[in-house]
Design a protein around this nucleic acid. Structure first.
Lengths: 203, 203
DNA sequence: CGGATTTCTGACCATGCGGTCAGGAAAGAC
DNA sequence: GTCTTTCCTGACCGCATGGTCAGAAATCCG
């Protein structure tokens, strides 16, 4: 695919610059509307040079997606079965919201891909995402059964957390236009979600 | 723009067929990736004939978006200030979820547009959406102040309802892959959201 | 019927795109 | 230094796409 393990300094630097630029452009315009010229320009190099490092537009996109999947799921991996249930879940919400706040481009890239029907990530959704969700859902189900949190459908609880946190990244424009100037969506979201999930989960 | 008021039967029929086909294609692929040939083919006509009814790809997209905005907000318009607060809001959630369920293509079209930064709907968000949200938020704030529902940020409550209901349409693929076969996302979502907002709003 | 109007089509064009290629410039090895 | 490898570029190609146009069908209207 691309140059396997960047050896030289130059390779590492350009490899990185391309991925960074591509993230920006793909997140802004989606895969189809993004052009290699835009990415190359954003990365400060010529199109042929860009294609010296990656064999195709698709390859860049794929690299980005698979790199993303990992970091994107980290907040969920950190849910601790031995922690205090409500606090553990609220902490997850906080981590997820913070991630959306700090990585809105990644969130949008993901959103583009899923809305399109996940044409490039179909398999990984089942091999990586699903098992992890099942594992964590089981933990939540246990907490629920033990009466340590209110009764919930664990998987849909997770969907709710994804939906609400990513909403503020993906629909940022809408949120800001409705709130009007002078309000900080993210700070307000943090407080709101704390309340929402607090009430939802209280045993 | 397009043929203003379709007079003949043929015009009405083809006009409609084009919009229906375009909705399908735009929702599936997004604006940039959609092609006039696809839309024409889906509508059962030739590309030049399609362009006899609409002057450009953009015009079709715009027509679709502005038509959509109206129906999309209907469930919110029906919130009744004189109704029983909790039930009124839960009914809104139900209407919104049902709309996402029955019109997932419209939901995705909308999502595409907003993620891209709402390049075609910027104004309408402020002139149509914002005032309506403000109006309904005021009602919710009153209910809140009167102790008839729990204390909530009204606007973020509305965001939450949008986010959660549309999630099941926009991220349908992901939801289904995680849930696995044999489970009905929509029925489960209905129950889950009933619980979630019930607990959130109980005074 | 016949003429006017609407509806439709095949052929075409200009543009922008992803990707290639031959070879020049830098950088590294000795 | 010189030779080799890596890095980079301008010019180019084939193709798909949005859109045009001259005119053929079909429909409407008397």
């Amino acid at each position: 695919m691309s140059i396997q393990e960047p050896r030289t300094r130059i390779q590492r630097k350009n490899h990185q610059a391309i991925l960074e630029a591509a993230l920006e452009v793909f997140a802004r315009s989606g895969f189809a509307a993004a052009t290699l010229d835009q990415i190359a320009s954003e990365a400060g190099m010529s199109k042929p040079n860009l294609l010296y490092y990656f064999p195709s537009k698709e390859a860049i996109h794929l690299t980005l997606l698979s790199q993303l999947m990992d970091t994107w799921l980290d907040p969920m991996r950190d849910i601790d079965p031995d922690g205090e249930p409500v606090e553990e879940l609220l902490a997850y919400v906080r981590r997820k919201l913070q991630m959306s706040r700090e990585m809105p481009r990644e969130s949008r890239l993901f959103a583009h891909e899923i809305i399109q029907g996940a044409p490039h990530m179909g398999p990984e959704l089942e091999t990586v995402l699903r098992p992890l969700v099942m594992e964590k859902a089981a933990i939540v189900a246990d907490w629920s059964a033990a009466g340590r949190i209110a009764t919930v459908d664990p998987v849909h609880l997770i969907f709710s957390i994804w939906s609400l946190t990513q909403h503020y990244a993906d629909f940022d424009v809408q949120v800001r236009k409705v709130l009007g100037p002078g309000r900080d969506p993210w700070d307000e979201a943090a407080a709101h979600l704390e309340t929402l999930f607090g009430r939802m989960l209280a045993p």
